[in-house]
């Protein structure tokens, strides 16, 4: 074997190894969901009689579809809103920078460094007074704000890679700012925008702190659905695994379907 083939083989093995390690917890969760509670806590085994008991209890005890619908509305709603706000912001930062742009960007990111529990009380009081507790609108706004720094940053880097000359040419032909963004900039950076949106959807889908604290029943998404199946007294691993599998299934399928766009977006502009 020549050295390049060996290197390739080793790299492939390494990639597979990492993939298996990353995927194993998810695999184990799916398997555990089909066990009985006693099997779930017993020494690990792959040989057992699969049962749907966990899934039955989970579906019986909670209205899965209601939680799932809330998750979908909140995750996609907040992402759309975040893109609407972030595209103009990133445009102005990328194409009309001032000497404060760099600082503004860093300051935006710094808001992500504060643990969310630090602002729990003020946010809770604001939501209470605005009547946003336990509403989808409330969570959509919170998630939009939560993801905004990342969304602006990602869009900013994608926009910066677009040659200014193309936009300038458009302007020469009489395009106004709005047309310039919609007909030139957005089509050019679509893979980037798509991957940014996908990331925001996934982050919103998995967010558990605000959803647990700001919702009770009407607007509760899947993260609170999962949280209701762990217990300090009594066995719960199988039920929890079944609930978690149900909760991640939609986003996992969505992720698989959009994998191409995600990867394309994340590597977009990496090679110039």
């Amino acid at each position: 074997m020549n050295p390049t083939t060996t290197k390739k083989l080793l790299l492939t093995l390494l990639a597979w190894g990492i993939a298996v390690i990353v995927f194993f917890p998810i695999f184990w969760m799916v398997v555990t969901g089909f066990k009985t509670e006693v099997q779930a806590i017993a020494p690990p085994t792959l040989i057992f009689d699969p049962t749907l008991a966990g899934y039955n209890t989970v579906i019986e005890r909670a209205d899965y579809l209601k939680f799932a619908l809330n998750s979908i509305v909140i995750a996609f709603g907040s992402t759309l809103l975040a893109l609407l706000v972030a595209i103009p912001a990133a445009y102005s930062m990328a194409f009309l920078p001032t000497k404060r742009t760099r600082g503004t960007l860093l300051w935006m990111l710094s808001t992500k460094m504060l643990p969310p529990v630090g602002v729990l009380m003020p946010i809770y009081l604001l939501s209470r007074d605005l009547g946003l507790l336990d509403t989808r609108t409330g969570l959509i706004i919170i998630y939009m704000l939560m993801n905004l720094p990342i969304v602006v940053w990602m869009l900013y880097t994608f926009f910066k890679d677009v040659p200014k000359d193309i936009l300038e040419a458009g302007r020469m032909d009489g395009a106004r700012t709005f047309q310039e963004v919609v007909y030139l900039l957005l089509p050019l950076t679509l893979p980037g925008i798509a991957s940014t949106g996908l990331l925001a959807v996934i982050l919103s889908w998995n967010e558990a702190f605000w959803s647990l604290n700001l919702t009770t029943s009407d607007a509760a998404p899947l993260t609170t659905f999962i949280a209701s199946f762990s217990s300090p007294e009594g066995l719960f691993w199988a039920k929890l695994s079944a609930a978690s599998t149900l909760a991640i299934a939609p986003i996992l399928i969505f992720g698989w379907m959009t994998q191409k766009q995600m990867v394309r977006g994340l590597t977009f502009g990496a090679v110039k």
């Binding site: 005890r61 009770t216 209701s228 762990s230």
Partner: peptide, 17 residues
């Protein structure tokens, strides 16, 4: 209407409210 949560999560949630 039921809101069922794990003990520690419930305690924090209720205290906040």
């Amino acid at each position: 209407e039921w809101v069922v949560l794990e003990e520690n999560v419930l305690r924090q949630r209720l205290t906040t409210d």
